[in-house]
């Protein structure tokens, strides 16, 4: 199920502006990899290159290779739509579809991609809402709009929506930054469970969160404002937080800058 990601020499642009420069790394399957670093260092941009969402932004352009097991996402003849079905994404702000009910939101990815029988969908919706620890809270109001839920519930709904299409990799772009500590805890617990099925990459500004949820941590930084972001170092989370090899990482983690 879960797949390994190998990135080599990846550079991303917004128009003529180079946002991230020459990044090479790999992401282990069935594990959680956290990206940390100051604002504007290209963590989110890099994350979005991993499911070809970067090119949705006007002027977005990518050079380099991203291998999913052994297929290059940017190879010739690759359909971005298939890439995104394989590599799902959860965004910073919860964004359930406002015209759809809770049920329809979870079923959206499947319904919009093909036809399913009602009983089949019922099972998938229940399974994924359970997987997102949301089932007990919403099982009596599946036909109510998703926008009526609290922020934390909406974000778990979005996670259920992303997992319902059964991707191999799940990208999370600061999924807790708009949530309170209790909802954050719920999502972190959920990430711990999800990694048994998915390869998870999470961008976070919260270093404690990175330390709590991730197996490996990558630190990004930029030399100065306007310069492209770079990968400074990546390694096991314990090692990065206790014994970083680069001075900048240590400074960032210990709160001396950033």
């Amino acid at each position: 199920m879960a797949k390994r990601i190998d990135v080599t020499g990846l550079t991303a642009y917004y128009g003529t502006h180079k946002a991230i420069d020459d990044i090479s790394m790999h992401v282990e399957p069935m594990s959680v990899t956290a990206f940390i670093g100051p604002s504007g260092c290209g963590k989110s941009t890099f994350l979005r290159t991993l499911n070809r969402m970067h090119e949705v932004t006007p002027g977005g352009r990518v050079e380099g290779k991203v291998l999913l097991d052994d297929e290059d996402l940017y190879g010739p003849g690759v359909d971005p739509v298939s890439v995104r079905r394989t590599v799902g994404m959860v965004f910073q702000r919860p964004n359930p579809f406002p015209t759809m009910s809770i049920y329809d939101n979870v079923a959206a990815g499947l319904r919009l991609n093909g036809s399913y029988r009602k009983s089949e969908l019922d099972d998938i919706v229940e399974k994924n809402l359970r997987g997102a620890n949301l089932w007990n809270e919403v099982k009596d109001r599946l036909n109510k709009p998703g926008s009526g839920l609290s922020g934390g519930q909406q974000q778990r709904l979005c996670i259920a929506r992303a997992t319902a299409v059964e991707p191999e990799v799940l990208l999370m772009d600061e999924p807790c930054s708009a949530l309170d500590p209790i909802s954050t805890l719920a999502i972190e617990d959920l990430i711990g469970q999800l990694k048994s099925t998915f390869t998870i990459v999470i961008v976070t500004h919260n270093m404690q969160q990175a330390a709590r949820v991730s197996d490996r941590t990558a630190f990004f930084n930029l030399a100065a404002v306007g310069q492209p972001g770079k990968l400074i170092e990546i390694g096991d989370t314990d090692r990065i937080f206790s014994n970083p090899t680069v001075r900048a990482t240590e400074d960032y983690i210990s709160g001396r800058f950033g």
Partner: peptide, 21 residues
């Protein structure tokens, strides 16, 4: 735009995103 991105990230083609979302 977040809604468009949410739909695209689910692997929904652009034309269906426009039509259904």
């Amino acid at each position: 735009n977040e809604l468009r991105e949410a739909s695209l990230a689910l692997g929904v083609p652009k034309w269906r995103t426009i039509l259904k979302v």
